[in-house]
Amino acid sequence: MKRKLLAARLDLADKISEISSRKGTLYDYVNDILEQAIRAEEIGLSLKTVLDDRWTVKAMKDAGFILVPEKLLYDLAEVAYKRVGREKTTMLWYETGQWYGHYYGDLRKFEAAIKNCFWDVSEFKILEEKETAVLTCLSSKFSATYTELFSKFLEGALNALGLSLSQCEVSKGIINLKFVKPLDK
């Protein structure tokens, strides 16, 4: 087979060479990489798009999220809410939210994670102003109970990120939360 020389960035070429030494020859490894790049382009995608999506899956797994059929989750939440009671159930969601607030440690990262993984949420945004942050979350799929629980999850996360709830408006499928930022010392 005819061969050509490809110029590659030094650090990447070294890295590829290092990886290939664990898998076989450099030539075969580069061949495989280039074939996959062409395959991706042939289905109308860039490798970056494909890897970004795959990365999201890994990030969600690392963050302790798990897939569940949505109807089953909403039903479970409904039953548990009635059986265990409002206080305990909302506290669970609030504390879980706190954990995720600490986990992401940054308002924009948290916002991005919600947008990426909660695809039952049709609109999600956090608008920051000088002293406040306003969170809006809309979902046509949420029940009234699930909306309340999810609002506590969001409240917990933003509290963990240093914001204090000042106003809240929660009704079936609609969450509007206003937070006050801590005063600069």
Binding site: M1, K2, R3, K4, L5, L6, A7, A8, R9, L10, A13, D14, I16, S17, L26, Y27, V30, N31, L34, E35, I38
Partner: peptide, 20 residues
């Protein structure tokens, strides 16, 4: 490595058809 180019690059051999 297949070869050396400028200071920040290296040359790597690859199948001609794929490079095209």
């Amino acid at each position: 490595m297949s070869g050396k180019s400028s200071r920040n690059q290296k040359l790597i051999r690859a199948p001609s058809d794929l490079v095209s």
